[in-house]
């Protein structure tokens, strides 16, 4: 027996997850930005020892990765929207979207290796 497809491809609920994720990641980045900017504006003359010590803390490592993951997810949604607006041929658009995804996946792996390689 064939049942009707349950997914509704159009309508007001399509895309709300991206919409929400874009805002949640934005707020996470906003909070982290205040801390990061505060650190660099207040603390002048950061030495290598300070810098290295900062990233030896497991808490800082996890917070830094959370910030970067928010950046990558936010960038994925944003760039996908831009590509959907301007790149009309479907094949090219999908190809570029795959390239963006692979790039951001690479950045994620690279971030982990930098942060935990200290």
């Amino acid at each position: 027996m064939v049942s009707a497809a349950k997914k509704i491809p159009v309508g007001a609920h399509y895309g709300w997850k991206d919409w929400l994720a874009q805002r949640v990641t934005a707020v996470i980045m906003l909070l982290f930005s205040i801390v990061i900017i505060g650190f660099f504006m207040l603390k002048g003359g950061v030495t290598f020892a300070d810098w290295k010590e900062l990233f030896r803390s497991q808490l800082i490592r996890i917070l830094a990765l959370m910030f970067l993951l928010s950046v990558y997810y936010h960038a994925w949604i944003g760039i996908k929207d831009v590509l959907m607006d301007y790149i009309k041929p479907a094949g090219l658009r999908i190809g570029l979207q795959v390239a963006v995804l692979l790039f951001l996946l690479g950045c994620t792996i690279w971030s982990v290796s930098i942060i935990w390689g200290v």
Binding site: F48, K52, A75, C107, W110, I114, V118
Partner: peptide
């Protein structure tokens, strides 16, 4: 900016 930040982070650490 994303690749630049990662390069600087890697280099400085």
């Amino acid at each position: 900016l994303i690749p630049a930040v990662l390069f600087v982070l890697q280099g400085t650490l």
